Structures are given as C-alpha cells and as structure tokens.
Amino acid sequence: MRLTSLFFFFISIVVFPQKTIKTSFVKKTKLKAESIVSVTKSSNYTSLKYIDNQTLFLKLNDSIIYNYSNVQLGDITSFDAFSPLKIKLFYRDFNTVVVLDNRLAETDKVDFNVVKPYKNVSHVSTGFGNKLWVFNQDSQQLELYNYKTNQVSAKSLPIQSNLIDLKSSYSSCWLLTESYLYKYDSYGSLIYKIKNENYTTIALDYHDNILLKSANNLFYLTDYNQTIAPIEIPKLLIKQFLVTRGSLYIYDNEFLHEYQLIKD
C-alpha cells in the first residue's frame, strides 16, 4: 500500500505543473541607462545604481550623488553589487576587476594579467570577504579566488559546455551553461544541476532562490526542491531584470518597471 502511495505521489509531480507566480504592479520610472546594477528601497529613500556611457552612477531618490568611470579600462563587461560595500566591475578586455566602496571610490584593482599563475577570466562574481568567483577560461573551471592573498580556496571540475552567466551569494554560486544550470557551495562542490531549457540570464532572490530568463519570459526557481515556476508578467520588452526582497524590477530600455512577487 505504501509503495502504491509513493507511486502516485511521484506521478503527481510529473502530471501537475508548478503553479504560476503572480505579480502586482507597483510603479514605473522613466530612466535612460545601459544597465541597471541594483535597487535598494527603504521607507525614507530609494537608492539606484546604474551604468550609462561606461560610467557607474549612484542616484539617491532623484539626485545623482556619486559616479565612477575608468576610461583606460574600456567597456564594463559585467558588474556585481551583491555586497554594497564591495561593488565589483569587470573589464574583460583588460582582464581586470575594480572593487568600489559604497561611495563608488576605488578600493582595489585586480589585474589577472599579472597574477601568478596567470588567469584568463571570462566571468566574475562576488564571494565572501575578499574572495571572487572567477571562471578560468583556459582551464574551464570555476574558482573561488582571494584577491588579497592570491590563493584559490575552491575549484570545480572542468565545465564541458559554454558558459552563459554567473551569479553568486556569499555561500553559493550559480553557473549557467548552454547545457545545464549548476549550483556550487563555497567549497566548489556541486550541489545540483538542472538541464538548461533555453535560459539565458540569472538573477538572485533571497534564500538562494533565483530567477531565470528564457526569451521574453521569466521563471522562478525555488532552491530547496529545485522546482521552476513561470512568473506572470505583462507583455513588455525585458532588456534587463533583477529582484530585491520580493520586488521584481524589469528595465525595457525606457522605463524601470517595479512589481511585487506574489507567492502562496
């Protein structure tokens, strides 16, 4: 009898799809930017970091209070503001990461061209303290690298598929390839992998849950059981998206749209 119950339990997982996650519109704000870096809200202010004309801006409410640019390093390839006190800008053409504080003042510069052994890095994301998750293109491995001590504390097995995106929290790292989505812990051990169903971008939510983009659609991956649910949003261009404590932000190249995620 117990075997029969288990059989129907697993069948129910296959037959019934994950429930759609609904959204509630909050507001939209006109904005001209190349990329949105982060949005932080409180009862008193809204802090927005964005990149335009290869310059990182910090806007508090409606006033730009800080900015940072480094024309010598060329275009900003990617950015990571998971730690607001250690913002990372990656300049792939020069194989270099710049670390900024919360006032966008430069505190560190990591030039992988002079690191020994040399690292040919294609993707960078934040780690705990002075550590960076970096993807070594020559070895095809994910490394947890301490840029103060020049030591690698964790390393994955070689990845057999082209890397698309890389995101991380202090304790975990997600690596999206053309074949699979991988999650690693801070020791470089694989926690799980999921077949990539045409996903192209990752965004982090809290409790290690993540959002995935496929074409012009968004999906929510719940970490503890690895279920993926579609997110119900209006039809609009998704140039970029991010999520902060249940608030979903979608930039369509003209407006920054804010929605609240509604999860049962």
Rank of each mutant, 00 (worst) to 15 (best):
Y184F: 12
T177K: 00
V134K: 01
D62E: 15
F9Y: 14
E258I: 00
D223I: 09
V114A: 01
K32D: 14
Y249H: 02
L73N: 13
Q160A: 09
N216L: 03
K155I: 04
L58S: 15
L261P: 02
S172G: 03
E34Q: 13
N198V: 06
N70L: 04
K86L: 12
T149R: 09
L256M: 05
L31E: 11
I21T: 10
N217H: 05
K32G: 01
Q240A: 01
H207P: 01
L73Y: 10
F82W: 09
D223C: 01
T244C: 00
K32Q: 13
S189Y: 10
N225F: 13
F128R: 07
L248P: 03
F25M: 06
Y224G: 01
T227K: 13
F94R: 06
T126G: 12
T96Q: 04
Y192A: 13
K213N: 03
T40A: 10
D93G: 05
L6G: 08
V114K: 11
L89D: 00
N120W: 11
D185I: 07
Q137Y: 08
V152P: 00
S125G: 00
W133S: 03
L142S: 11
D264H: 10
R2Q: 13
K195N: 09
K27P: 01
T107L: 12
Q137L: 07
N196S: 07
F16D: 08
L212H: 04
V37T: 10
G188W: 07
L237R: 06
L48E: 08
F9S: 08
Y170T: 12
S247N: 13
V14Q: 12
T40L: 15
S153H: 03
N196W: 11
I164V: 11
N225R: 11
V134H: 00
N146Q: 05
G246M: 00
T96W: 11
Y259V: 07
Y180N: 14
N136F: 02
V71F: 11
S156M: 02
K28D: 12
Q72C: 14
T227S: 15
K235E: 14
R92G: 07
G74L: 09
Y199F: 15
E106L: 04
S42P: 02
D111E: 02
K32T: 08
K116Q: 07
L190D: 09
I36W: 07
A105F: 15
V39R: 08
F255S: 08
G74W: 02
R245L: 10
T126N: 14
Y68I: 04
N67G: 03
P158G: 00
S38W: 04
S153Y: 08
K155L: 04
L221V: 15
P158I: 04
S153R: 05
I231W: 07
D208C: 06
T149S: 14
